[in-house]
Design a binder for these strands. Sequence first.
DNA 1: ACCTGAACACCGTTCAAGT
DNA 2: ACCTGAACACCGTTCAAGT
Lengths: 236, 236
Amino acid sequence: MKLPLSRDAIVTEALLQLTREGLEGMSLRKVAAALATGPASLYAYIENLDELQALVLDRALGSVDLRGARKGGWRDRLVALLESYLHVLSRSPGLAQLALGAAAVGPSALRIVETLLGLLDEAGVDRGTAALAVDLLLLYVTGIAAEQSKNFEPTDPEGAVARAIRGVSADDYPRIHAAREEMLSGGEERFVWAIDVLLRGILQTSRSPTASLAPAPAPSSPSKEARSRTKRSLAR
Amino acid sequence: MKLPLSRDAIVTEALLQLTREGLEGMSLRKVAAALATGPASLYAYIENLDELQALVLDRALGSVDLRGARKGGWRDRLVALLESYLHVLSRSPGLAQLALGAAAVGPSALRIVETLLGLLDEAGVDRGTAALAVDLLLLYVTGIAAEQSKNFEPTDPEGAVARAIRGVSADDYPRIHAAREEMLSGGEERFVWAIDVLLRGILQTSRSPTASLAPAPAPSSPSKEARSRTKRSLAR
DNA sequence: ACCTGAACACCGTTCAAGT
DNA sequence: ACCTGAACACCGTTCAAGT
């Protein structure tokens, strides 16, 4: 219709469809149709659907703000980065599902990981712990985003999960019943709190990982400053 | 061919296909064919594909061992339960993806959550923290299982993730490059270590959650014993 | 109520043929 | 090399018709 067909135009149109219609609403055939061609034409630019999905995911991750809250300690910047990541994934319903399914190893995803590793190094976290921490943090935020997008399905105003938890039998599942409100509480507070829990575990484990884990706790030697910063932020 | 068609037979056949062929290898049409009928017939027993997937997931989760390591402290039993959960999800390649996609709120999933809440209560973890902790633990283990199943695809012997991480440019992503071996290390040790990190954060946060989190820190009052057990296990 | 054949409205991917 | 029409081998779901 407009553009002369290119890898870039294909990814742009696919992301647009994903944002508007969710994961099911995006297809090679529809992308081709929107670009006024047949589906076979796309294969000159992309390998297959999997690759297109990976490209779309990385395109979306490109708008994560890596410099959020540039001032402030490592902790505030880390939370700001994760919030931006959550915000981007929450923008379109299918994106979080895509992030869980596809391996996020494009340049934008790598830049996010690189930045997180830098922030954790500032925090005094050793390399082995930081590698695990990045996994943990991104997995959690992605999971949260996917859960949110699932509960916002128009077919299910109240959300299937919420209904299931709230309707649980007090006889069969007494503890779930007792904790049902806590299990359903979401929102910003819970998010920040969860990150807090993760960081506590990470910081506490750092510098003394299980002996068998690393070949040798390499001397990445964070500054004394970094370590005292850690202490302060834990004390808050 | 054999059975007179029933919800149970449909779920059994679907799980079999999922286990043998992965998520893509299971379809309503193939289940119907295996049961010697047309696809339309299944709709007398199930609502749609989504429901069938949820039923298959819960059927599979039914074989998670809730009594693993019955003796021993709460911590050993919790790790044993999560290992069993990981083992079940790892058994078939599509199952972990299904667990990430579908909301796990069937009876078997609820029994797992109920058991985890019980173990965390034994550990002296308050209800609000425990609700978050269950989310965190299950999400992490499910994520690990999904990642593993992705790397074992026959089309990609070495794994796309592994290749991407190992081939990362030292100039563009110095920290990822430096930590590449740590980022790729998996296996049992790393699993246990990760659970350890999560539990440290959880135990440390418990009893003093962010003020705004709960309406009022309900007096769930774990025994003094439970709290001293917590201390011991942290000290190890 | 349960079951069915046939159709509807889609998919991703391939391939021979064109330019 | 890029692009295409047409076909291939699938999907989930619906629906009128049977029992």
